[in-house]
Design a protein around this nucleic acid. Structure first.
Length: 195
DNA sequence: GTTCTAGAAC
DNA sequence: GTTCTAGAAC
């Protein structure tokens, strides 16, 4: 299939503006009809552009909130809507999905991951990818909500702790296997889907 | 967040 | 010699 995209986007311009920083990319994805799964008055659900499992969605608020660390008690309703969206998607999925936030997100605009546990995807490539979903670097939705309700904010963990999680040896999320490297892990994960 | 790739690990 | 990881990106 051919595309007209290149002709439409490669507009040479002497007044070309500097490209938007990569960390703002989610703002574009939120507007992309091909990415959008569901949209409500307060939130939008999109498919992750580089999914790390067979099912991988992101829930984002329309409101300009950069991360969980900007939340206060006024956002509890908003976060509860994240939960409703999660519940809905989880019930319609054929497998159990988990919901949570990265302790140190790379992308701006608050986003909650909703992801299946298989972790089978060509986009899963690095130890950091793996550990960001399978260690405490991944902060479960329910925990974040409870902390916000209790303390009125979500506390950051010390950077050394986060570094330790990311540097931790890779371990299977479905059994006790400890792969030697990422290709080894990816091969191993396939065995958990066979019947 | 991804891409690229040097050099470590095997 | 090949595979794999990890750091730079102006």
């Amino acid at each position: 299939m051919t595309t007209k995209r290149s002709a439409m986007t490669s507009v040479p311009s002497t007044a070309a503006k500097k490209a938007r920083h990569w960390s703002l990319g989610l703002l574009d994805s939120m507007k992309d009809p091909n990415s959008i799964v569901k949209k409500t008055e307060r939130v939008v659900v999109i498919k992750d552009k580089y999914p790390k499992a067979k099912i991988h969605y992101l829930v984002l608020p329309h409101e300009d909130i950069s991360s969980i660390y900007k939340l206060d008690k006024s956002h509890i309703r908003l976060l509860e809507e994240f939960g409703s969206v999660y519940k809905e998607l989880n019930e319609s999925a054929e497998v159990e999905l988990k919901a949570g936030f990265h302790a140190v997100p790379s992308m701006q605009r608050l986003h909650m991951h909703i992801i299946s546990r298989d972790m089978i995807s060509p986009c899963l490539k690095t130890k950091a990818h793996w550990n960001s979903f399978t260690t405490k670097f991944f902060r479960p939705y329910e925990d974040v909500l409870q902390e916000l309700k209790k303390d009125g904010l979500v506390k950051k963990m010390p950077p050394e702790i986060h570094k330790n999680f990311m540097a931790a040896p890779i371990k299977c999320n479905q059994c006790s296997y400890e792969p030697k490297n990422m290709p080894n892990l990816k091969e191993h994960l396939l065995s958990h889907t066979k019947k």
